[in-house]
Amino acid sequence: MILTAPLAALGRQTMAFMALIGRVAIFAFQGLTHIFRPPFYGREFLVALLNIGWLSLPVVGLTAFFTGGALALQIYDGGARFSAEAVVPQIVAIGMVRELGPVLVGLMIAARVTSSIAAEIATMKVTEQIDALTTLSTHPMKYLTAPRLLAALIVVPLLVGIGDIIGIFGGFIVGIQQLGFNPATYIVNTVNFLQFTDILSSLVKGMVFGGIAATMGCYFGMNSGRGAQGVGAATKGSVQAAAVLILAANFMLTSLFFAS
């Protein structure tokens, strides 16, 4: 009994997580269909664009910049062990664009956007604002979920693109300042090395991660329990689930794009 208890707990958690994915998938599908059925709430959409996109720029930029810099140092140091220091530009580019850019931006969006969406919607639920929306003939999925989901699907790929560029730039700065690379060669090596698939995969990942982040925030918010405790639990659950799903989706998308 005692020996199997952790296993049983793990099994229960896994089952619960799978059930959650099922419910979330249905929720996400409903959210998507509401994007295409009128009415469309333009003001909510613009506010969501601003919150998810524009206001995330500083945190995305800083994260990408430092990561790109650290990546350059690591690759230089690691590459030196078999006299391959010169590959820094290429590996930084591939590492940022294929993996680190999308994943870091996705996780930052989960921390910043998923949590705030979940807390906001959960508070609305707890204070009966969602009920009030319904009685005012406004569908909560259409008014709350659809604009945020659409905004995330559009703007997170852009953020990822920006993160990729800033990350590469971080590597570039470290490369020329500290590692003695020639700036022009660095840029030429980066640009020539990257392929269309690399960039496409980056943006597709961004879109998927954005969709996951917005959906989890809305789902946990709408299904929040009662009271301040309910809001807290919804926020925590949403960020946890978004982060895990983003990493899982990242693995699947990487296998899809590059493993064949």
């Binding site: 609305m124 204070t127 009966e128 604002q129 009920d131 009030a132 929306l133 009685t135 003939s137």
Partner: peptide, 20 residues
Amino acid sequence: RDAFLARFGMLFQGGALFDS
């Protein structure tokens, strides 16, 4: 549902105003 709800007005116990 829309036509049904359009006939109703409701004051919630806690007000339920949209704070945004």
